[in-house]
Simulated scan of single mutants.
Amino acid sequence: MNTMTGGCQCGRVRYSAEIESDDAYLCHCRMCQRATGGVSIAFVNVPVAAVRWDSAPDWYQSSPIAHRPFCATCGTPLGFAFLKDGENVDLTVGSFDDPSRFKPVHHYATESMHEAWIDTRDLPRIRSEQNENVRQRWMDACGKTPD
């Protein structure tokens, strides 16, 4: 078991979580699509007792059965939890400080899956610094490109 840390984009909300497994999954349900603005979201499922919020998130009741932690300052979605009797919480993979260890092991809510976004390996790959317009904006603003 490893302790991993994470939080929102602006740093207001921070957490640490005891992680037992590298397993993650992609949720394709319409509620997650709307909550994130994406076609799916990557989650790691952990026991509620394994998560410590160093600074508390805001919570949005997204349905009659669930609510979602997020940062009201920067808007970062941080997870999903059932309202009653939820022993586990899903944390967003992208909110971990180092999400590289996690690997997807299944898809969930596949009735809402957008197949065209699943296998993108043959699409051209463009690195951020290859976009001169964006690179120059970062250089002008702070002298370096983001991590």
Score class of each variant (00 low, 15 high):
V44K: 07
S16T: 15
D140K: 13
C27Y: 00
F96S: 08
D97R: 11
Q136L: 10
T92S: 10
E111F: 07
A72V: 02
W53N: 02
L123T: 09
D90V: 02
T5R: 04
G38E: 02
E129T: 03
Q61P: 07
V89D: 00
E115R: 12
A66N: 06
K103L: 04
D140T: 15
Y60K: 12
P99L: 04
M4I: 03
Y60V: 07
Y15G: 01
G7P: 00
M113Y: 10
W59I: 13
S55W: 05
S62A: 14
M1N: 12
D140G: 14
T5V: 01
E111A: 13
T92W: 00
S100V: 10
G79P: 02
V93F: 02
D23R: 06
K84C: 08
L123Y: 10
E129A: 03
G75M: 09
A24Y: 11
D122E: 15
G94T: 13
N45Y: 00
G94F: 01
M113S: 11
C32T: 13
A17H: 01
D97S: 14
W117R: 02
E132T: 15
K84D: 11
P57W: 11
D23E: 14
E115W: 03
T92A: 05
L123D: 07
P104G: 09
A35C: 01
G6F: 00
P104R: 04
K84Q: 11
A72D: 12
S95E: 01
I126L: 13
N45H: 06
